Computed example of a mutant assay.
Amino acid sequence: MKTSGRSESTLNNYARHLAQMALHFNTLPTELDEDQIEDYLYLLQQQHNTPSESYFKHTVYGLRFVFRLEGLDDKRIALPAIQREEKLPVILSREEVKRLLHTPTLLKHRILIALLYDCGLRCMEVRSLQLKDIDLNRRMLHIRQSKGKKDRYVPIGSVLAAGLQKYIDAEGPVKWLFNGKGDPSIEGRKGGDFDSRYSQRGVQWAVTQAVKQAGIKKEVSVHTLRHTYATHLLEAGIDIMTIQKLLGHESIDTTMIYLHVAQPVDRPPLSVLDQLYGR
C-alpha cells in the first residue's frame, strides 16, 4: 500500500473503512460475495443519505484498491460509479479578506491566514513550511513534495514578506515556520523525534475563529482561501495557465473551475435591471 503512491490520509481512510466492513461481517472484505458487498453498500447509503458521502466513497474506493492489491478481478463486484458533485467554490471578497486578516490577535494567526491567501497554499503545505523554504530576498516560497509528490515555487508579496520577517524575528522559529504545542511523549514520534508542526486542527481552528470574529457568514474553510487566491488572480488578469502552475494543479481542467466564479474588473454589465435604471 505504501508503494502505491497514495497519500497517508488516503491509505488511512481506506484501512479504516475496510476495517469497519470486516468487523461487520467478521471476515476479510476479499472473502465476501457480491450479495454481501451490495447489502453493505446499501446499508451505508441508507445511513449516510447519498452515495456522494465520504464514508460511502472511501468504502467503495478502498474495495477497488484492495481487490487490485490482492490480484482479484474487481469487476466481479458491481461497485457503483461515484459522480463528482458539481459545486462551485465559495469565494471571499477583497473586503472580507481584509477583515479576516485584521481580526486575529496573534501575529502567528495573521501570518498563517496571509500565507494561505497570498500564496494559495493547501493546509498541509502551510503546516509543512520550514525556514529554509522561505527566501525573503528573492521573495519566493519553496513548496516541497506537495500533492502528487511535486515541488513548486510561488512568489511572496512585499506585504507578506514584511510580515514574515516580523513574525520570524518575534517568534524565533528554529525548523518549522509554525510550531504546535504537542507533547513529544504522545504526538507522532519518528525515530525519537516528534512532529512539532502546527496541527491540521490548529490551522482549521485559527481560520474558523477569524471567520467568526470577522462576522463573515459564508461557509469558509482553510481551502476557501486557496480558492479566493486563484479567483482574485484571475480577476486581476493573470492567465489561467500561470494560475495552474502557481496552484500546482496537474490538470488544467481543475483550474478551469475558477473561470465560472471570477468577475473581471472590465467585464460588461450583466444586470438588465441595472441597465434599465442606468446604474
Rank of each mutant, 00 (worst) to 15 (best):
I240K: 02
L92G: 06
V66W: 00
Y167N: 01
L273D: 10
I37E: 08
T10G: 10
S52W: 03
G237D: 13
R226V: 02
I143S: 01
Q213V: 12
V97Q: 03
Q165G: 11
S196R: 13
D73M: 10
Y258I: 03
G215I: 12
E219R: 15
L100N: 03
M124H: 13
M241K: 15
D239T: 09
T228E: 01
T242E: 14
A78S: 13
R68Y: 04
T242D: 12
V220L: 00
D133Q: 07
E95M: 11
K132S: 07
D151H: 05
E235N: 08
E125N: 00
K245Q: 11
L164T: 05
Y229W: 13
I111S: 05
L18Q: 04
G163F: 07
H232S: 14
E171W: 14
V261L: 05
L63P: 02
L115C: 10
R6C: 11
T27Y: 00
Q165F: 11
W176Q: 10
E96A: 02
T208A: 14
V220P: 06
R64T: 00
S251Q: 07
I134V: 08
V211L: 01
F194D: 09
G120S: 07
E219F: 09
T10D: 07
T105V: 15
V203E: 10
L247G: 02
K218R: 07
D35K: 15
Q46H: 12
L276P: 00
D266N: 14
G148Y: 01
P89Q: 12
G237P: 06
L69V: 04
L88P: 04
L234D: 12
I143Y: 03
M21I: 02
T59K: 03
V126E: 02
K132Q: 08
R138P: 03
V126D: 00
E34G: 12
V97H: 09
Q47S: 06
V261Y: 09
I252M: 08
Y14K: 03
R144Q: 05
